[in-house]
Nucleic acid binder design. Structure first.
Lengths: 154, 154
DNA sequence: TTGTTTGCAAACCTTTTGCACGTTA
DNA sequence: TAACGTGCAAAAGGTTTGCAAACAA
């Protein structure tokens, strides 16, 4: 049994939040207000979210942040490999926490309604590592996106 | 022997070009000038290309086309599944001919120089189909992007 | 002729950047 | 205080759309 379900594995990551804060501090970054809000929003999301969505969610919880700070924080976190960037094909970048243990999932994107679900598959990971070893390329990361119709749109 | 090399499989597709033209005609579309130029440019490309690149290449070969017509044609072709859309992660959509026999490849993207190479792997295709069968989602297409550093940037 | 396609320009959206002000350590 | 972070507004792409002229069938 190599495959898990498509259910989300977590809807909030206090562990990741602490990890991210520590990594930033260790790197010499300061703990500004906008930065904290973005990290908290990322930690609280179930799957990937765009910069605009994170900005909106911060506003919805009473926070106030410039959109530029959201983009700058995402850029900073991504540069430190604290978040993963996902392109679901609609021209908008989405992000989600990158777990320190390397655990990650891939995405099912509905072409009709645009919803995104997560899935994980060990056999898929194994094959990708095999491919990564044989190509003349140093592979640091990989993305797999399955497109089609979700349960409700099907 | 399940895996092929990372070399490009074709640098021009007259077969695809005829196929695309026939599909458009069968569907009632007219053969306008811009449309022909975009189809010819797609047929002649080795791997995926963005709308802007296709537009530039048409200009380079003496053609003249409005960028809007390039986007409209790409949209039309994509809607008929005559081309595949690839997102390499830089926020620009890229396209390449979709072969009628379903043959396709995936991409290696260099995070340093942005170059894109193609690769194919049968085991990867098999695993993806297995995953597609088990998830609660109708999977119509899939994309795999491996990121890292190409030979020259490594 | 008649509906389709095209080109231009303007509009849209996401993302980036310059710069002055506010904040952290 | 000295460097860093933030917000605003403007700029920079890429992509889409309205519309009148050009064109294919």
């Amino acid at each position: 049994m190599t495959a898990s379900s498509t259910h989300h594995h977590h809807s909030a990551s206090p562990i990741w939040e602490a990890h991210a804060r520590a990594a930033l501090a260790a790197q010499g970054s300061r703990a500004g207000g906008a930065r904290q809000l973005v990290i908290a929003a990322l930690a609280g999301q179930a799957c990937c979210a765009s910069a605009q969505e994170i900005h909106a969610q911060i506003a919805a919880t009473g926070g106030a942040t410039g959109i530029a700070s959201v983009y700058r924080t995402l850029d900073l976190l991504h540069g430190l490999s604290l978040i993963t960037r996902i392109d679901t094909g609609d021209g908008v970048a989405r992000f989600e926490p990158a777990h320190p243990d390397g655990a990650h999932h891939h995405h099912l994107v509905c072409d009709t309604c645009g919803s995104v679900e997560a899935f994980h598959d060990d056999a898929l990971e194994t094959v990708i590592h095999t491919v990564a070893d044989r190509v003349d390329f140093r592979v640091d990361a990989h993305d797999v996106v399955l497109r089609g119709a979700c349960r409700s749109c099907r």
